[in-house]
Structures are given as structure tokens and as C-alpha cells.
């Protein structure tokens, strides 16, 4: 499985002294292969998150294409693309991303909950993930009762519970201590070794040691 993008460009309206357009990502081509953990580094505002959002089907590019096994994902309608994202992509967004009215187990099972297609095996796998991420005791807790590190581990479990082909992680350790940072990177590395294509966007140097492929972005381009 290969997720490949070619000529990806994203421009936004932004009034500056010289023009009304701001190009966040400029003609980027990239491939994510299964079994490989790709770390994309760069300073804030370099276009990393915008690129990742386009790759994960959340942000329509201004130009260029994103293909999953040769199929342009932006040629799909919203329902099909959403279903693809649900089945094939797992994403760990920035910050705290729990749904406050659901308990922790329900948050982790959210991808199944949306399509009402979980099996007892899926629930068993979710509980196994919770054990591995050391949040099994929080199954019935509400997000407001958890610490930042616990919520991040919950988001990771949610991203991988469907065993997706591609995992995207946006600054997954941004607000975590060293111990939690290590847990998160180890888990993502393990997911890659189990066959997923993993892309981590970060500006933390610690991430370099976990990378199979290391990329850097600057002013909207991969350098």
C-alpha cells in the first residue's frame, strides 16, 4: 500500500502588502509506504499540518492529487471519502480531542460507533490497546477526569483501533512529559513495524531517533 501525493499546493486568502494569497504548501510530492515511520519536521507555520490534512483527506488541495493505491481520494464524494478516512486512515490531531459526552471507551470506539459496525473482537482489541497504553482503568471515566497524557493516549488508541493502513499524528507529544513522549513514539514505531504507514508531524528533535524516513519542511516546501 502506498499513499502518494504529487504537486500538492494549498493557498489561502490572506491580505499582505504584496498579494491577497498565502501559499501554505507549495508543489509538494511525497510517498508514505507501509511499515515506514515518516517524521516530518519543520518550524511552526512551515506547512506541516496543512500538508498532513491534505494527505488525510480533510483538506481539499488547491492543486495536485493524493492517491491511495493509485486511486485519487479527492475524486470521491464526501460520504465515500469519510468512509475511507474511517476505514483506512487513523489520525491523532493536535491538542485534546475527546468528545466530552462519551466515556473513554466510547471515545476509543468512536470510529466504529459512527458506522455501528463493531464486533466483540473490536471491543476486545480496544481494551487490549487501553491496557498497552495504560489507560484500561479509565474505561468508564469521562474526558474531563483525565490528564493531558492520558487523553493523548486515548486519542492514539482511537486512531489505531480500526487497524488503519495509514496513521497520521500531528504534534502527538506537544504537551507531554518525557515519559509520555517516549510511550507515544514507541507505540507509533510499533504500529509502523506491524505494517501501517505512519506519518508524524512534529518540531521536536526527539522524534528523529524514531524515524525511518526524516523529512523537513520550510516555507511550504519539503527541503
Amino acid at each position: 500500500m502506498i499513499l502518494s501525493a504529487s504537486g500538492l499546493t494549498k493557498s489561502f486568502y490572506r491580505k499582505t502588502a504584496n498579494s491577497n494569497r498565502f501559499t501554505a504548501v507549495d508543489d509538494v510530492s511525497i510517498e508514505l509506504k507501509d511499515g515506514v515511520l515518516t517524521v516530518l519536521m519543520g518550524r511552526s507555520g512551515s506547512g506541516k499540518t496543512t500538508l498532513m490534512n491534505m494527505l488525510s483527506g480533510l483538506l481539499q488541495p488547491s492543486s495536485g492529487s493524493v492517491e491511495l493505491d493509485g486511486k485519487d481520494i479527492y475524486s470521491l464524494g464526501d460520504k465515500e471519502l469519510s468512509r475511507l478516512r474511517n476505514r483506512s486512515f487513523g489520525m491523532i490531531p493536535q491538542g485534546q480531542t475527546a468528545v466530552s459526552s462519551l466515556d473513554i471507551f466510547e471515545n476509543i470506539m468512536l470510529p466504529f460507533f459512527l458506522y455501528k459496525d463493531s464486533t466483540p473482537q473490536d471491543e476486545e482489541y480496544a481494551r487490549e490497546l487501553m491496557k498497552r497504553l495504560d489507560i484500561a482503568h479509565l474505561e468508564a471515566a469521562k474526558p474531563a477526569e483525565l490528564s493531558g497524557g492520558e487523553l493523548r493516549r486515548m486519542a492514539i488508541a482511537r486512531a489505531v483501533v480500526r487497524k488503519p493502513m495509514v496513521i497520521f499524528a500531528d504534534e502527538p507529544t506537544g504537551d507531554l512529559d518525557d515519559e509520555n513522549t517516549s510511550v507515544v513514539f514507541e507505540f507509533l514505531k510499533e504500529s509502523a513495524h506491524q505494517g501501517a504507514a505512519v506519518m508524524v508531524v512534529t518540531h521536536e528533535n526527539d522524534a528523529k531517533s524514531y524515524a525511518d524516513t526524516l523529512l523537513e519542511m520550510k516555507s511550504g516546501k519539503i527541503v
Binding site: S82, R83, N86, L110, P111, R158
Partner: peptide, 8 residues
């Protein structure tokens, strides 16, 4: 977050 998880 629901959208990220695959909600249309």
C-alpha cells in the same frame, strides 16, 4: 474530531 474519525 467526529469528522476526523470518519463522519460525513
Amino acid at each position: 474530531v467526529l469528522r476526523v474519525a470518519g463522519a460525513a
